[in-house]
Computed example of a mutant assay.
Amino acid sequence: MQDSRIRTVTPEDGLPAHFRRVVSFHPRGGRLNDVQRRAWTEHAESWYLDPEDYGPENPFDGDRAFGRSAPLVIEIGSGMGESTAAMAVARPDINLMAVEVYKPGVAQTFHHLARAGASNVRVMRGDGVQILTELIAPGSLAEAWLFFPDPWPKTKHLKRRLVTPPFTELVASRLRKGGTFRLATDWAPYAEQMLAVGSTTKGLRNAYPGWAARPDFRPRTRFERRGIAAGREIFDLEFTRR
Score class of each variant (00 low, 15 high):
120 N>S: 06
31 R>S: 13
180 T>R: 10
1 M>C: 04
52 E>Y: 01
105 G>F: 07
231 G>R: 11
107 A>E: 12
95 N>K: 01
91 R>P: 03
229 A>T: 09
4 S>M: 13
185 T>V: 05
65 A>I: 05
101 V>A: 15
207 A>Y: 01
24 S>R: 03
210 G>H: 15
49 L>P: 06
50 D>P: 09
92 P>A: 10
59 P>H: 06
15 L>V: 14
142 A>H: 04
180 T>Y: 00
152 W>V: 08
89 V>Q: 04
46 S>F: 02
46 S>C: 06
142 A>V: 05
147 F>R: 02
44 A>H: 10
235 F>G: 10
185 T>Y: 11
7 R>D: 03
128 G>H: 06
165 P>S: 14
131 I>N: 07
54 Y>N: 10
150 D>S: 08
168 T>G: 00
175 L>W: 03
3 D>E: 05
181 F>D: 11
34 D>F: 06
224 E>Y: 00
197 V>L: 08
178 G>M: 03
196 A>W: 02
211 W>F: 09
136 I>N: 00
144 A>S: 12
107 A>T: 08
230 A>G: 00
69 S>D: 13
189 P>D: 07
236 D>A: 07
186 D>E: 14
217 F>K: 00
79 G>V: 01
240 T>W: 09
99 V>E: 12
95 N>A: 15
105 G>P: 03
17 A>V: 10
11 P>H: 02
188 A>C: 09
207 A>V: 11
160 R>A: 14
236 D>P: 05
52 E>I: 02
208 Y>T: 00
235 F>R: 14
196 A>D: 14
196 A>F: 10
30 G>D: 15
152 W>E: 13
13 D>V: 06
160 R>G: 12
138 P>Q: 02
88 A>T: 06
4 S>P: 11
43 H>R: 08
171 V>H: 12
204 L>K: 11
198 G>L: 03
